[in-house]
Computed example of a mutant assay.
Amino acid sequence: MRWVKLTESQIQESVAELSGWNRKDEKWIEKKYRFKEFLDGIKFVNQVAHLAERLVHHPMIAIDYKLVTLRLTTWSAGGLTELDIQSAKEIDEIYRSQQISSV
């Protein structure tokens, strides 16, 4: 499937609906996730990796001890698409479900 780059107004509207995701520039959105333990972050990254494989859409991932930073863009479209927004929402759901299960 070929993804179409969102317009500036679509990007602003979509990102405003996402919790904690920020624009890095015209091509990227980014979010940082904090964890109580290092291995909780690793578990999260592994779940994100499975999502990325399912969607065939892979984020940039940085792991800094208990802080995981994810960045999304759609290379083939030259910027942000609905696939990035969908991925962000599903990643947030993974994070929420992991936090609930660890309580």
Rank of each mutant, 00 (worst) to 15 (best):
S87I: 04
E93V: 00
L39T: 13
A88E: 00
E82M: 15
R23E: 15
Q99L: 14
R96W: 06
A52G: 02
Y33R: 04
Q98Y: 02
L72I: 12
K66S: 13
L51C: 03
V45S: 07
H58L: 10
L55Q: 10
I42F: 10
E17R: 00
A52R: 10
M1E: 12
S101L: 10
K31G: 06
R71D: 00
G79F: 02
T81H: 09
Y33D: 02
Q12L: 11
F44A: 13
G78K: 06
R71Q: 13
K5P: 03
R34S: 09
M1A: 08
D40G: 05
L70Y: 02
E53G: 11
A88Q: 03
Y95M: 10
F44L: 09
Q86M: 10
I61H: 08
Y65W: 15
E82Q: 14
V68N: 12
L51H: 12
V48E: 03
R34T: 07
E30L: 07
K43G: 07
E30P: 08
M1V: 14
Q98T: 00
V68R: 02
V48I: 13
M1P: 07
E8A: 14
K24C: 10
N22G: 06
M1F: 03
H57S: 04
T73R: 11
K31W: 00
M1Q: 10
F35V: 02
T73G: 09
V45M: 14
I61A: 10
L18E: 00
P59M: 02
T73W: 01
E26V: 14
V68M: 05
E90Q: 15
W75P: 12
V45E: 03
V48G: 05
W3V: 09
R54P: 00
I29E: 09
E37Q: 11
M1C: 03
S9I: 11
A49Q: 02
S19M: 03
W21R: 00
K24Y: 01
K27G: 12
W21A: 00
L70P: 01
V48S: 02
E17N: 00
T69H: 12
R34M: 10
E8K: 11
Y95H: 11
A49T: 14
R96I: 14
L55F: 15
E93F: 05
S14I: 06
L72F: 12
K36P: 14
E93T: 06
S19E: 04
E90A: 06
I29V: 13
I11H: 05
N22E: 14
K32L: 08
Q47C: 03
R34F: 10
E82N: 15
S101K: 04
V4E: 04
A52W: 01
D25A: 09
T74V: 08
A16G: 07
V68F: 04
R54W: 03
V68K: 09
W21K: 01
A49I: 13
V4F: 00
S97V: 12
M60C: 04
L80I: 15
H58N: 09
K66Y: 05
T7W: 01
L18W: 01
K31V: 08
D92C: 11
R54S: 11
W3Q: 15
L67K: 13
L83Q: 06
I61T: 10
R34K: 11
A62K: 07
S97N: 15
V56D: 14
L80V: 04
R23K: 14
V103S: 08
R2V: 12
A16V: 02
S102A: 05
A88Y: 01
H58Q: 08
I94V: 03
G79L: 06
